[in-house]
Nucleic acid binder design. Structure first.
Lengths: 264, 264
DNA sequence: CGTTTTCTCCCGTATCCTGAGAACTCCCAT
DNA sequence: ATGGGAGTTCTCAGGATACGGGAGAAAACG
């Protein structure tokens, strides 16, 4: 637990993280205590962070994000970064499974499809395009992403939405949707069984970010004809491996399995 | 020039700045060279930044912003920070001058009034409110903020706009607007002489941010009756002092006077 | 005005950072 | 294949420099 052999830069950056984490609400002495930093050291480091513009003094016992760093990072786009890292992995996933794979992120209540890798053989009538947006409630990707929300945000979504059925299988009851999403949190995957299109089944799992939170989701889609009852769970290990690898590349903590940790 | 006595954290943060500065376009060896860092040292520091999630490896000789830090800082709002720091200064400014003072920032082509401190005596019919948005081309604040744009962005603005005259004095010709803005860049201030309202004159100056760029503008407004010809330039020193102090609090470089440095 | 909390400064010590160079890995041109 | 060059990591010894306990300003508090 106590990582004794921590270098000075590590300490400073951990401190910075603590300072910026919630916009400067955590008292400084708590942050320092949480990192086992002697106060005198913590102050010295903090004042250097301030000098460099990465942090800022908000008040007594209070630091917050610095303007320089805010401006600096405001130009960089998280989803672009994820997309860039993810694309080769999804290509491999489609290679292995022969299925169409997607990566999606949640943007203001809608799923944005950032990556789409066609399966083999490339089925003609696949309707997704990169960059397109789709309602979240009906797709496997969407359900996984919704499962990653905080409880409060999730309830907001469920209460405000007008859920239109795309197929006879689409879930449109807020109650059963919530049920489904809670189940997703436990199992770590979601299935779309012809809920968005009559001939399509999808399986999706979350991708963990640096703090273990869900930053994206990946899925595989299979077309189903009449009668043939293919089970998507056979592909789950491939999908899971892909998502975990991606998460690690994005800096997710080691143990961030398919858990969804929900705070108040 | 060569700051020999630089601490390790300073070096690391300077390196990080260089890495994040333009989304990972600058080759790593150039950054290191620019900071007089031995390559071996630079690599060591960079890999620590990557481990901490503040930077990310984009490719050979290429680093970029890290996802963890991007997510971290994406929650913090630059304009809120500026507003918080600026408010007491504007209060003092209004005290000293007896005029109504404003702080505004540019948001997608419009000026957002973030702070409004009423003058003395509090004139009744002042039409600005905190949080309100106004077209940029007709106010002193707007002209200063436009003057802070890159040339390309400025031209975009001038070409796309439909400039509606609010008073007979409003400039609506793109050419004369550009003229006015170029003059503003040189002089370091802008005047709105009854261009937005028949009975109001404003004087505005830019506020410099951490890189010397314009991040906001402050102004004082005076009501003019018929005949009385008050010269707003008498208040310029007060305004200038306020803007400079604010800039320093925001981490502006010492020498960022009223210069507007324009890059290609 | 006394008391508590926050914060800075000092200073000897040991730590850990430094940076040249060797070594390794790719990648490309020959 | 072979050599060369750029990119990257590793090693290591010496010394700068970061560390952190503690004293005591300096604020906030009551």
């Amino acid at each position: 637990m106590s990582r004794t052999h921590t270098t000075s830069l590590e300490k400073s950056l951990a401190l910075l993280r603590g300072i910026v984490a919630d916009g400067g609400r955590t008292p400084f002495n708590e942050i320092a205590a949480g990192l086992d930093l002697p106060l005198s050291t913590a102050y010295r480091l903090a004042s250097q962070l301030v000098d460099a513009g990465f942090a800022s003094r908000y008040g007594p016992n209070l630091y917050g994000p610095g303007l320089a760093a805010t401006l600096l990072y405001s130009q960089s786009d998280a989803s672009a970064h994820i997309t860039r890292v993810a694309r080769p992995l999804l290509k491999q996933l489609s290679q292995e499974t022969g299925l169409t794979s997607h990566l999606g992120i949640l943007e203001s209540g809608m799923v944005t499809y950032k990556i789409r890798i066609p399966g083999r053989p490339p089925r003609a009538a696949s309707f997704t395009r990169e960059g397109m947006q789709l309602e979240a409630y009906c797709s496997a990707l969407g359900k996984v992403l919704l499962a990653g929300l905080q409880d409060a945000d999730l309830d907001d979504y469920l209460h405000e939405g007008a859920f239109v059925p795309l197929t006879p299988h689409t879930l449109i009851e807020p109650a059963s949707l919530k049920q489904e999403i809670l189940k997703t949190r436990q199992t770590g995957f979601a299935i779309d069984d012809r809920e968005v299109s009559e001939d399509m089944i999808c399986l999706a799992v979350p991708v963990a970010g640096p703090l273990g939170e869900t930053v994206a989701a990946v899925s595989v889609s299979m077309l189903v004809g009449r009668g043939q009852n293919t089970d998507p769970m056979g592909f789950h290990p491939f999908l899971e491996t892909c998502a975990r690898t991606l998460g690690e590349l994005l800096g997710a903590p080691r143990d961030a399995a398919q858990e969804a940790d929900q705070r108040s």
